[in-house]
């Protein structure tokens, strides 16, 4: 099972991207997107922004569940109060795990925001953030 995670800033700019695979069922944590899908991934998530902007006003919750699909792949979304979007491209429906995953990433993101050296919408380049996200991915997905 393969996943593609992107955190999108308020100007549709990616601030963090990660492509990873599951560690469950004997998988080794590398993504197995085929090359045709791989080169399209960012564009699919970018297109899903249209749907997020549409449905984000209809609910009070931050987690929007699976909002879009593309050839059997699902796209789940989470919108932070600061209008930063977390998007995850995945293959099977797994609402609860993804919700926990997003909530924990949001905690990490808030910690990044607290840093005086970080401006909103800047790319997150902190290696410790990267490691923590990967740990969360291993834990939940």
């Amino acid at each position: 099972m393969s996943y593609y995670l992107a955190m999108i800033g308020t100007q549709d700019n990616p601030i963090y991207e990660l492509e990873f695979g599951s560690f469950r069922q004997g998988n080794d944590g590398t993504s197995k997107f085929n090359p045709e899908m791989k080169e399209l991934n960012p564009f699919i998530l970018h297109a899903a922004l249209d749907i997020i902007e549409d449905v984000q006003w209809e609910t009070n919750t931050l987690y929007l569940k699976a909002i879009d699909n593309f050839y059997g792949h699902l796209i789940s979304a989470y919108v932070t109060p600061g209008n930063v979007k977390f998007l995850l491209l995945h293959e099977t429906k797994n609402e609860e795990a993804i919700r926990h995953f997003f909530t924990d990433i949001n905690d990490l993101y808030v910690k990044v925001l607290l840093s005086p050296f970080y401006n909103a919408n800047d790319p997150i380049i902190s290696p410790s953030f990267d490691v923590k996200v990967k740990t969360l991915a291993k834990k939940y997905l």
Binding site: F43, H46, L49, D50, I51, E53, D54
Partner: peptide, 16 residues
């Protein structure tokens, strides 16, 4: 017009 158009989707399909 936020959320009221599907321009990005259109662009994705044009790309494909």
């Amino acid at each position: 017009t936020m959320g009221l158009t599907r321009d990005r989707k259109a662009a994705l399909w044009a790309l494909i």
